[in-house]
Nucleic acid binder design. Sequence first.
DNA 1: TTTCAGTTTAACAATACAGTTAAATCAAGT
DNA 2: ACTTGATTTAACTGTATTGTTAAACTGAAA
Lengths: 207, 207
Amino acid sequence: MVNKKDDNQTEKAILEAADKVFTQKGFAAARMEDIAQEAGINRALLHYYFRSKDKMFDLIFQQRVSIFFSGLGQIMHSEKPLIEKIQAIVEHEITILLAHPYLPIFVLQELNQNPHRMLAIAENAGAHPSLLLKKFSVEVRAEIKAGTIRETDPAQLFMSIMGMAIYPFVARPVVKIILEKDDVGFESVMLQRKKEITDFIIHALKP
Amino acid sequence: MVNKKDDNQTEKAILEAADKVFTQKGFAAARMEDIAQEAGINRALLHYYFRSKDKMFDLIFQQRVSIFFSGLGQIMHSEKPLIEKIQAIVEHEITILLAHPYLPIFVLQELNQNPHRMLAIAENAGAHPSLLLKKFSVEVRAEIKAGTIRETDPAQLFMSIMGMAIYPFVARPVVKIILEKDDVGFESVMLQRKKEITDFIIHALKP
DNA sequence: TTTCAGTTTAACAATACAGTTAAATCAAGT
DNA sequence: ACTTGATTTAACTGTATTGTTAAACTGAAA
């Protein structure tokens, strides 16, 4: 019932190829031919598996977004103390982005072009994204009241955490040039960065 | 010698339109027709002024990149004390990005697709970008030796500064949803953010 | 009035691309 | 051997888009 490759091997190859091409080029610049070549097959078979470019893109995009935000919700809603939670967020984000370096620029670029997609996905995910920040804010304010951290706006703090962790990947080519690193060097800098960011935040929050 | 509009009025209108369309959609998704409509003219006149889409894009892109990095070099090479310099960088970046909110995602997305462009532009700009970091590093290490700031890796610090300032604009649609703000609200949050980031960094660097 | 650059209109050519299809091939299971 | 589904080949349709062109129009300047 199956040919050369076992069962859904081809489908998987296509999805991987589509992911790679869409992620690197974005929807508009991606060509079905590119995806086919990357998957080692031809255009006809692409349409045999996935009807249209749009359908393929929607699939990939949803997957990518969920990877991008995966785990984050879980960590944010966990019952860890604030500092540990921040540390977990930073480590989680950097780990994910080391495995998917082109993920954030892709997702953010496409979201910028179709902001409505964000809402659709958010609803799909169940909880409204602003709830993430709500719980975080309560915890930050509690620590401030308890005197364990300095007076800070929780939203601003949240943006700082995300910015420090994610931005280097978004600006990857610039960073590589300024730091004079190749891909390997970049990765090792990002590994160090996990601890660096956490330390930075801990000191910044000291009363 | 001139028609309805004075001299280079049209050229200016075209450049502004091209900037808007390219910046919002990226090169691949941008249509010459879009640009023409945005400029209030027709496609033919577009080619009358600028031969091709590529030529127009190159112009716009160079302009945008130079805006993105403009002033930064000047500040970095100034003789301000370190903390003031950091403060100046943050204020400068956020001020620029408030005026050009879609700038970073555009530049970074196109750079990710054509990293070689970065080098071309860098050379064009005269100085190698890594020199920016070199001077900064020396200054940071001097302050560390003098005991005025905590032991920190200069490159990591630099990425943190840039990330905190720039990332919210890159992730603008996400930020707006999580913070439940409209465009006006977003801008006011970013205005506050100037001081927030500087304070954050100052505290993080305290020995 | 004539001239001339800027501008519009309305085609056109050339290409690129998405999507479809029919027929042939191939590899495995029956 | 026959069947069946996966895959390729190769063509095709239709449309979007870039780029070009010729002709007409316009309004200011000479």
